[in-house]
Design a protein around this nucleic acid. Structure first.
Lengths: 216, 216
DNA sequence: TGGTGGTTTATTGTATACAATAACGGATGT
DNA sequence: ACATCCGTTATTGTATACAATAAACCACCA
């Protein structure tokens, strides 16, 4: 794991709390590398939107409820577009990848006895593979690049998002619906199902997230 | 102008041609600065999507017709979303900014006698202000960040895009239509008008661009 | 008291040397 | 002829010193 990934991890897990100030100097001490790789990491994190520039240095970004709404709006738009396009351009290979992702998801979901964290990791991974397959099938390489920016935020909230059994089950049902629509070439249905899927995620996050302070 | 901007300029104007290989070493010689700022510039350019990583170094990105289509699809989606939201959230301040941008556009358009490049620059700037005002009015800060990624490509083609009088005139008409829709709070009309506006730009670029080679 | 100017200090910007590594090419054996 | 190993070279990765700059502090005067 390189320094960028380490710092990212530290932000996502809350080791560096929202609003915390980061300077190149302090980070060299925290991670025991020189300023050069630190600078690179900071640049990357700024791209990701995880930190915001200060007059001097950066601070760990504070996400408000309004941010969550805005980001999920965009994510819904981009992913539903991808699902729609996927319904047109999908090949058997894409459908196969989506099916396998859902199988993995289901298998992980059923393993109640397993180590908790490992199980969640498997589910998260399967989820990622599914959505990635949709992007591939959409035949628009640029939408993947774009979505990466908007996908960082959910990452921060994954802690509670992924720890509700009913939620996990519903998500799988959504995936099945999306897959059926994409498979049968039903563009509008695919878009609607994906939009619904994303918004469900949004509402879940909003419900459990009491952050930002100033926002409604 | 810093090194990043200089290199960007060089790419956009075609001094560095598509496919041309860029290494840190060679760039230090071209621009007479050390590797440190060069590396930073390369990182930024990669984020912009203007260069693509090689096994070693980068190469100036080659955009195919298919790239143009994909990028404009996304741009249409994002900008029409912004226009729709703007129709809901706009204030008098936003409307004023849009009007002034259009006035500037029109004034520049009429100045036939003026120095050619200056006139185009004024039009380009007014165009930018108008679209920016729409983003502001949309009350979704994240959509602005996102669009910046997708707006780099048109930049490359601006050379011929901005040099057709009829095209410039049509664009202004589009702006007026969009403004009216946003002003009267007509969400669907605003979205439709913006989508139309972007796609007109796309078709114009596609018509004059014979690049990419392998694509249709 | 409150603001203006200058001095100190914190922090980033740049150059450069050296280390690490991946690509290249050529020699060798089969 | 062709693959494979190894040495050479091109290129990037990292550390670090020094320069530039902006922020913070403080003294001075109105």
């Amino acid at each position: 794991m390189n320094v960028y990934e380490k710092i990212k991890q530290a932000i996502v897990t809350g080791l560096y709390k929202p609003g915390h100030r980061l300077t190149e100097e302090s980070l060299t001490k925290d991670w025991e590398v020189s300023r050069t790789p630190i600078r690179e990491a900071l640049k990357q994190l700024e791209f990701d939107g995880l930190i915001t520039p200060l007059k001097r240095g950066f601070s760990v970004r504070v996400f408000s409820k309004e941010d969550v709404r805005q980001v999920y709006d965009l994510r819904a738009m981009l992913e539903s577009y991808a699902a729609g396009q996927a319904s047109i351009h999908r090949t058997n290979g894409h459908l196969e990848k989506m099916k396998q992702a859902n199988d993995s998801y289901e298998m992980a979901l059923e393993k109640q006895g397993q180590e908790h964290v490992e199980r969640i990791d498997a589910i998260v991974k399967a989820n990622h593979v599914f959505h990635d397959a949709v992007f591939e099938a959409s035949r628009n390489d640029h939408v993947r690049e774009l979505i990466s920016k908007v996908v960082v935020l959910p990452l921060i909230f994954r802690s509670f998002y992924w720890f509700d059994e009913k939620n996990l089950f519903y998500s799988l049902q959504n995936h099945h619906t999306i897959l059926r629509a994409v498979e049968s070439g039903d563009v509008e249905r695919a878009k609607a199902a994906m939009t619904e899927h994303i918004f469900r995620g949004r509402d879940y996050v909003l419900h459990y997230y009491e952050g930002g302070g100033t926002d409604d």
